[in-house]
Computed example of a mutant assay.
Amino acid sequence: MIKLIAGLPEHVIGFELSGKVSAEDYEKVLMPAVDAATAGGQKIGLLYHITPEFEKYEFEAMWDDAKVGFRHLASWKKIAVVTDVDWIRWSVKSFGFAMPGQVRVFDQAGLAAAREWLAE
């Protein structure tokens, strides 16, 4: 499941991922929110909080994640990924260099620090 995070600064959009994340979650929640936030052409911050309740991505969801990233490649100012899931932390650290803007990984205890970093 993907839920939009409320209460973030205007230039930051955030999502909370938990349980099983499906392509439908991306198509109904994440993609429309990202499209709306980037419609004016401004660079935005992205908070991607993968909660301890996260179980897995469906294959189609991982594909949708890649499509969103590439479709909005020039839109990202900062990306903060908050997770304790080792394979996701490793993936972001390994491939984050390919994303424009700054990419940082935070553990669950660093959620507040991630929000502060994005708000700067």
Rank of each mutant, 00 (worst) to 15 (best):
G40Y: 07
V81E: 09
Y57T: 05
L30T: 07
M31I: 12
Q108R: 13
Y57Q: 03
T83R: 09
R71E: 14
L30A: 10
E16F: 00
I44Y: 04
G45A: 08
W90A: 11
L8A: 06
A113R: 14
R89G: 00
V85I: 12
P9Q: 10
A80P: 00
D84K: 06
H11S: 14
E60Y: 00
I44W: 05
S91N: 14
F54Q: 05
A23M: 10
V85F: 11
I13C: 08
I50E: 04
D84A: 14
A119G: 14
A74L: 10
K77F: 01
L46F: 06
M99R: 10
D35A: 14
D64R: 12
D64M: 05
E120K: 15
F95N: 15
D84C: 05
F106Q: 06
E53Q: 11
V85A: 13
I50Q: 00
V82F: 03
T83E: 08
A109E: 13
K56Y: 03
R71L: 05
K43V: 00
W117Q: 07
W87C: 05
M31A: 13
L4Y: 12
G14K: 07
P32Q: 10
A113H: 10
V85K: 13
I79M: 12
S75V: 00
S91V: 01
W117N: 07
Q42N: 13
G101I: 03
K93S: 07
L17F: 12
Q42H: 10
W63K: 15
Q102C: 00
R71W: 05
Y26M: 09
A61Q: 09
Y48R: 01
F97N: 13
F95K: 10
V21Q: 08
M31T: 12
A61G: 01
E24G: 05
A36G: 09
E60N: 12
V21M: 02
W87F: 14
F59R: 14
E120R: 15
T38R: 10
M1C: 03
V85P: 07
S94V: 03
W87Y: 09
A23L: 03
M62C: 02
L8C: 08
Q102R: 11
A37S: 14
F106P: 04
S94D: 09
I50F: 00
G101M: 01
I2R: 09
S91M: 15
K67G: 04
K56I: 00
W117E: 02
G19S: 07
D64E: 11
L4S: 11
A114L: 05
L30I: 03
A6D: 15
I44P: 04
F106I: 03
A114T: 02
R89E: 10
L30F: 05
V103P: 08
P9D: 10
G40K: 11
A119R: 13
G110Q: 12
P100N: 15
T83G: 04
W87R: 13
A74V: 04
I44L: 14
A109Y: 05
P9C: 06
G96P: 06
I44M: 13
K20Q: 12
